[in-house]
Design a protein around this nucleic acid. Structure first.
Lengths: 149, 149
DNA sequence: ACAAACCTTATACTTTACTACAGGGTTTAG
DNA sequence: CTAAACCCTGTAGTAAAGTATAAGGTTTGT
C-alpha cells in the first residue's frame, strides 16, 4: 500500500538517494522495512523525519546534533527522563542563543536596507559590522529611534 | 601601538592561527598591515570581524554567505545601492525563515521538557517529531493551551 | 648571546557530509 | 521479452572547512 521507495522519498524531500542511505548508515534515518527483493519501503513518518533533517540542517545543526534531537524521546516510566530533559534544555539554550543572534543580525540588515540608501551622510554605518556595533550600543539605538520618530 | 599579532587575535577570538590565515586566504579577513619582519598586525576592527565570523558560523551560515554579509557595504554615491539592498533583503528573508524554524523547534523542545516528564499518559507526544506535529496543528496547540490554563 | 616563544610560507593531512561509480538484481512499459 | 528505469551493496572520489607539520626567520627574557 502506501509505502514509498527510496526514489520517491528522495523526490518528496529533495534528499538524494545516496544521501538517504548515508543517513541510514549514520543512524539518522531508521532502517526501513524491506520489500521481498530487498528494496527499502518508507512510511509517512519517514518523510517527516527526513524533512526535519533538512530543516535542522538549514539552521546550522550538524548531523550529530540532529541525531541527538531525533533521539530525544521520553519513554513511559523511563528513569532516563531527567537525562532527556537535560539534553533538551541544553539544545533549548543553544536554540535561544541562535535566535537572539539572528535577531541582532536581522536588525543590522534592516538598518542597512532602510537607512543606508538615500542620505549622503548616512553611509557611515552602512556595513553590517557598523550596523551591529550600533545595535550593541544602547545609547546609539535609542538615538537612532529618536531621530526616526 | 595597539596592534595585535596573530596569536593575540587567536586568543581573543578563539579562532586558531592557521584558521585565521585560512580566512584571509578566502577573503573573509582582509589582509592586515605587516610589521617590518612581515608579522600580521591586526586592529580592533579585525577583532570584531573575526567575532562576527564566529557568530555567523554558529547560526549555520557557510563561509561564502559570511563573505557576502561582510561585503555588504553601501558606498556613498554608489550606483550599486540597489544591488546591496537586494542582497541584504535576500539574507533577511533567509534569517527570518531560520528564526521561525528555530522558534517552532524551541516550542517542541519546551513541550518535551514541560509536558513529557510526569504523567503516565503524556508520553505519546514525547519525541521532537511528535511535538512538532502538534505545533503544526493549530487545533492541538490551542487544546494544549486550554488544558494548561 | 642564546633558548623559548613567536611568527612566516607552503604543503599535506583530517573530518564532515555528501556524491559518484561499478557491478549486479528487479520492475515496469511497450 | 526486453530495454529503460529503478533498486541493491560496496568502494571510491569530492568539496568545504579546518588542522598539522616542516623548514626557517624574529622577538623577548635572562
Amino acid at each position: 500500500m502506501g509505502y514509498l521507495r527510496i526514489g520517491q522519498l528522495s523526490a518528496r524531500t529533495g534528499i538524494n538517494n545516496e544521501t538517504l542511505r548515508f543517513y541510514e548508515a549514520r543512524g539518522l534515518m531508521s532502517e526501513p522495512r524491506r520489500s521481498e527483493a530487498g528494496y527499502r519501503l518508507y512510511t509517512e513518518a519517514d518523510v517527516r523525519k527526513a524533512e526535519f533533517i533538512v530543516r535542522a540542517k538549514k539552521m546550522g545543526f550538524g548531523l550529530k546534533d540532529i541525531s541527538e534531537l531525533l533521539s530525544l524521546r521520553v519513554e513511559k516510566e523511563s528513569s532516563t527522563c531527567g537525562e532527556v530533559k537535560d539534553l533538551a534544555e541544553a539544545k533549548l539554550l543553544e536554540i535561544e542563543q541562535k535566535i537572539e543572534e539572528l535577531q541582532r543580525m536581522k536588525g543590522a540588515l534592516e538598518q542597512i536596507t532602510e537607512a543606508c540608501c538615500g542620505g549622503q551622510e548616512s553611509a557611515i554605518h552602512c556595513t553590517i559590522l557598523n550596523a551591529l556595533d550600533q545595535i550593541d550600543d544602547p545609547a546609539e539605538v535609542s538615538a537612532r529611534v529618536a531621530v526616526r520618530a
